[in-house]
């Protein structure tokens, strides 16, 4: 089968998605099915100047990094490079939270994602909205990106949410599959850093119950996830990333301000009340120390 031609275009980025992609375990297979006409690290047949000079044939445009009309690559405005490829390609994929929502570099003035400035729609590339898929995350999970590219290659119908993220990966919350789930379910708010036990939602800013992503479904580097390790979820797949005071849970009258997706405050309070009836010794002590 003919290789699918992909342009990996970096805008204002840290190259974190580039390196996260290199962690994909089956790269040999991928590189036999796809060909990069340009990639920030991997060899390509074309130089950046070739890419910016004229329209090289291309099937999928990948954009990594936030976008500003002032930012240039090889002396050509990034917006102009995007425009010259966007028309021709079958699909555009925003790779990472910066390209999707602006992310960390979106904190600078006039820097946004391709279609979104945080949650707000932008209009510069509006005419390409329907051919775009967003893979958010800081960085992207390599498997989520690669499988989406295969789905495009196979011309599968990809069901997306309002931010154009494939539902198959972003319908879950990061909370799904966390090894600390029981401490959340029974509202045991005794987390201390440096331990295997406890849930970071109550005190330490964990955003996993209201962040969409597959971090605990498809593990990172095939071995772990931030919340399993004991690091709060920072909400890096969301348009609001980065929020402030990331290691601290904002509360109103002792109740976390942000509740799990779709859960009303009143019902949450009722549930929390009921969990007070439990005394689960197993979860009050160390998992397996004496």
């Amino acid at each position: 089968m003919k290789k699918t031609r992909v342009l990996w275009l970096s805008a204002i980025s840290c190259n974190g998605n580039t390196h996260s992609f290199l962690n994909y375990p089956y790269l040999e297979q991928f590189l036999s099915d796809f060909e990069f006409i340009y990639h920030p690290v991997l060899e390509s047949d074309y130089s950046l100047e070739d890419i910016t000079a004229c329209g090289i044939a291309c099937d999928i445009l990948l954009i990594e990094g936030a976008i500003s009309s002032e930012f240039q690559r090889a002396d050509v405005a990034i917006t102009q490079i995007i425009e010259s490829y966007a028309q021709e390609v079958k699909k555009i994929v925003t790779v990472g939270t910066c390209a999707t929502f602006g992310g960390i570099f979106g904190e600078n003035d006039n820097v946004t994602g391709l279609h979104f400035d945080k949650e707000k729609r932008t209009d510069t590339f509006e005419h390409y909205f329907d051919k775009t898929i967003s893979i958010s995350g800081c960085p992207i999970h390599p498997e989520v990106l690669v499988n989406t590219l295969y789905a495009i290659k196979k011309e599968l119908l990809i069901s997306v949410d309002k931010f154009l993220r494939p539902k198959e990966y972003f319908a879950y919350t990061v909370h799904n599959g966390c090894t600390r789930n029981e401490y959340f379910e029974y509202k045991i708010d005794n987390h201390k850093f440096g331990t295997l036990e406890g849930c970071m939602f109550y005190e330490h800013g964990c955003q996993a119950p209201y962040t969409q992503g597959s971090c605990n479904k498809i593990l990172w580097n095939e071995v772990n996830s931030k919340t399993r390790a004991g690091l709060p979820c920072m909400g890096c797949t969301e348009p609001t990333f980065p929020k402030q005071n990331l290691f601290h849970t904002k509360k109103n009258m002792g109740i976390p301000q942000n509740l799990p997706v779709g859960v009303a405050k009143r019902t949450y309070l009722t549930l929390a009340g009921i969990t007070k009836a439990f005394t689960i010794e197993r979860l009050e002590k160390k998992l397996f120390d004496d």
Binding site: S20, C215, W220, N221, N224, K226, L231, C236
Partner: peptide, 10 residues
């Protein structure tokens, strides 16, 4: 990632 949960960006 065994320690930090993921790489890059832990």
């Amino acid at each position: 990632a065994l320690f930090g949960g993921q790489y890059p960006h832990t």
